[in-house]
């Protein structure tokens, strides 16, 4: 195995609170992520999973410890525009149509117009929204909006795809459908994905490895390898192996 692509070393994060009792969001988090790996950060709310993602994305600075990505800092990687981020809410720009929403980051990155148009069309097909390119965000359902957000991140062809509970606001059916879609997209691009979720089956279905975090203070309680065969389809959720992984992870929470 090569040297890890992302190395997270002794990362701690403290949020100062006025009454003096600072909140320990993360204490001494250590793990590595390999190139092309699909990693889930799983845990209940308050376990610091989003904080950890934001530290990797350079949206937050850790109180102590460091994140090193290909030997560089998250800031360097951000300045090289190698991140694609999908947030919990779709974060669409109301005044732009679907196509122009996907276009926005590419405009900023200075990708030529012709290339932008090609990528937008391809991404819309990928997320199944080819008929909605000229609609405004308010004309779409929540699931469709979220898919626009994903298409926008993927259109950048990012080296690192960071997803912060992207499907948590969706119903179970839409979520499972999008899980499957996401895997088929990922299998074509093979980017490194860091996926934050509080849904155990979702993390098992998607990931190569699940990093289980527990709260108060936020720390890693287990890292579970998911050795289910790929490509995975939703029918895998009915297998006993899948069920065993889900149970194993659930038990690791009960132990806390």
């Amino acid at each position: 195995m090569n040297a890890a692509e992302i190395q997270i070393k002794n990362v701690s994060m403290v949020y100062p609170v006025n009454n003096g009792e600072d909140i320990l969001a993360l204490t001494d988090v250590n793990f590595d992520i390999q190139e092309g790996e699909f990693i889930s950060l799983l845990g209940p709310s308050g376990c610091g999973k989003t904080t950890l993602l934001r530290i990797i994305a350079d949206l937050l600075q850790p109180t102590s410890g460091s994140v090193s990505i290909r030997g560089q800092s998250p800031r360097d990687i951000r300045m090289q525009q190698k991140y694609g981020i999908v947030f919990q809410s779709p974060v669409l720009y109301d005044w732009r149509t679907v196509r122009r929403n996907i276009c926005m980051p590419m405009e900023i990155m200075g990708i030529p117009k012709k290339e932008r148009t090609t990528r937008i069309t391809r991404m819309l097909e990928l997320v199944g929204l080819q008929d909605f390119g000229y609609k405004y965000p308010f004309e779409l359902s929540g699931g469709m909006q979220q898919r626009v957000g994903i298409a926008r991140a993927l259109a950048l062809n990012p080296e690192f795809l960071l997803m912060d509970e992207p499907f948590s606001a969706l119903d179970e059916f839409t979520r499972e459908k999008l899980n499957e879609d996401l895997l088929s997209i990922w299998s074509k691009t093979k980017k490194t994905v860091i996926f934050v979720t509080h849904n155990i089956p979702e993390s098992v279905f998607l990931s190569d490895r699940v990093v289980v975090l527990s709260p108060h203070p936020g720390r890693i309680s287990a890292i579970v390898d998911i050795n289910l065969p790929r490509p995975r389809e939703n029918s895998i959720r009915e297998t006993s192996e899948f069920y065993e992984y889900v149970t194993k992870i659930r038990r690791s929470f009960e132990g806390v």
Binding site: A57, L59, Q80, V91, Y93, W95, P105, I108, M109
Partner: peptide, 26 residues
């Protein structure tokens, strides 16, 4: 919203671009 700004921050957009593409239209 902070998320909208974070998204542009994450692709290293400069202040001018942030105003042009996000702040003014919003």
């Amino acid at each position: 919203e902070q998320d909208k700004k974070d998204l542009l921050f994450s692709i290293a957009a400069n202040k001018f671009k942030v105003y042009q593409k996000l702040m003014f239209p919003f």
